[in-house]
Design a protein around this nucleic acid. Structure first.
Length: 414
RNA sequence: GCGGAUGUAGCUCAACUGGUUAGAGCACCGGCUUGUGAUGCCGGGGGUUGGGGGUUCAAGUCCCCUCAUUCGCCCCA
């Protein structure tokens, strides 16, 4: 063990980085708020079953990526690897079916035991939304529209693109599953080792394999949509039409498959080419079977989650913060008076720093480095006359003003 | 979990095929200037060369292990 180092895959988020995360999270919340969503916060750990039962026994998240441990009460606990399962649990625990339809926004840390890479950490952060209780594509359209607006709001427009697919309803999906298995079983010899394993557990995933041999086989495989029943077809058609009407362009990727087992109908991803292998920046879909599978009432749902780290990496705007005013006492005697003035200005809504270390030159220099907009000097010669010196840090102009009229003079800096 | 690359000061990097006390720029601290932001000049603190072991008269340099980062695979946000 190497103490004094963060645990692998975790990191300290220093102020500069923190500002970027904040911008992403606040933009997500503001946009979601505008779309009529309310924030929900669920615990960052749950009983292990909450995840193992919902994410599917074959998913990588469950089989190798969960942070699971036993607590002192001998319960098996897991740090949440994603947000939806916990929210579904909260929905059931709190009897929220009476309030349907529900629109939730959430944000916070998630944990997956993976090998870290750029844009992939063991502790990472997501923002996400869920719409519960709406069985029609209106919810899917709203979810996707919200996602797009959010991404645009943080300045991501040209470097992300939307891929869309439908997995069909449960009946269509299982009909297709059989057809696909048959086809792939006849082409076993060309499949990669990995895909041979996937053939047993979840053949759908072979569709988006990156292996070249697999790709050739997949190209001629039966198409998901050819197995769709009327319901599945109508649903997808309605979704596409809705997106078209809102001017949201997308690419229909027939091989887009979401990793988690609980998805049906809609699956979508916003991806970028700027992050290497971690190109998925926001992804989601419909999960009509999830809540009932957990033991709750039959409740349709659709939602998405976005990776805050990944989005922050794409942000190229500088974060502007409010420029502070600094109060600088000159000489020891002025210090308590400066403290009182600082407090007074803060209570009046100004962002105020107190320059209290180093000589005067240092204090001004430091204020300058902190992008201060104005400096207020308080020294003995001013103090006796009940005035201060106010200096505009951009122009360098300095004038003497009375303490009483200070706020009035500071209006322009507010 | 699998494969490749990389770890030298807070940051970016240097140190010829192993050879004196591991250097530089930036940053930081102090002074020239004990009541005013710059530039300049002078000075200062900083490193068990990621960690451990080995080879050698001698290791930042070579070998092994380990930790971390990074790129890809897997998977995913």
């Amino acid at each position: 063990m190497t103490p004094l180092k963060p645990v692998r895959g975790t990191q300290d988020i220093l102020p500069n980085e923190s500002r970027r995360y904040r911008l992403v999270e606040e933009a997500a919340f503001c946009v979601a708020d505008r779309y009529g969503f309310d924030e929900i916060t669920t615990p960052i750990f749950e009983f292990t079953e909450v995840f193992s039962r919902t994410l599917g026994d074959t998913s990588d998240i469950v089989t190798k990526e969960m942070y699971t441990f036993q607590d002192k009460g001998l319960e098996s606990i897991t740090l949440r690897p994603e947000g939806t399962a916990g929210i579904a649990r909260a929905f059931i625990s709190n009897g929220l079916q009476q309030e349907l339809p529900i629109k939730f926004f959430y944000k916070g840390p998630m944990f997956r035991y993976e090998r870290p890479q750029k844009g992939r950490r063991r502790q990472f952060h997501q923002v996400g939304i869920e719409i519960l209780g709406v069985a029609t594509p209106q919810a899917d359209i709203e979810a996707i529209s919200l996602a797009k607006t959010f991404l645009e709001e943080i300045g991501l427009k040209d470097n992300v693109s939307l891929e869309l697919n439908s997995l069909g309803d449960v009946a269509s999906r299982s009909a297709y599953d059989q057809k696909l298995r048959n086809y792939l079983n006849n082409h076993k010899k060309g499949l990669s080792e990995h895909s041979l394993k996937r053939l047993k557990n979840n053949p759908l995933r072979i569709l988006d394999s990156k292996d070249n041999g697999d790709k050739i086989i997949v190209a001629n495989a039966p198409k998901l949509q050819d197995s769709f029943n009327k319901n599945s077809n109508n649903f997808f058609a309605e979704l596409c039409e809705g997106l078209y009407k809102l001017g949201i362009s997308y690419e229909h990727n027939h091989n887009l498959v979401r990793g988690l087992d609980y998805y049906s109908h809609t699956a979508f991803e916003f991806t970028t080419k700027d992050l290497g292998a971690q190109g998925t920046v926001l992804a989601g879909g419909r999960y009509d079977g999830l809540i009932s599978q957990m033991g709750g009432p039959e409740t349709p749902g659709v939602g998405w989650a976005a990776g805050v780290e990944r989005l922050a990496l794409l942000l190229n705007t500088d974060i502007v913060t409010k420029r502070p005013i600094v109060v600088i006492p000159i000489g020891r005697d002025a210090e308590s008076e400066a403290l009182i003035l600082t407090e007074r200005l803060r209570k009046n809504g100004y962002r105020v720093d107190l320059g209290y270390s180093g000589n005067l030159k240092k204090r001004i220099k430091r204020a300058n480095e902190r992008n201060t907009i104005a400096a207020i000097f308080m020294g003995e010669s001013e103090s006796v006359r009940n005035v201060v010196k106010l200096k505009d840090m951009d122009s360098g102009d300095q004038k003497e003003i009375s303490l009483d009229s200070l706020e009035q003079q500071l209006q322009i800096y507010k």
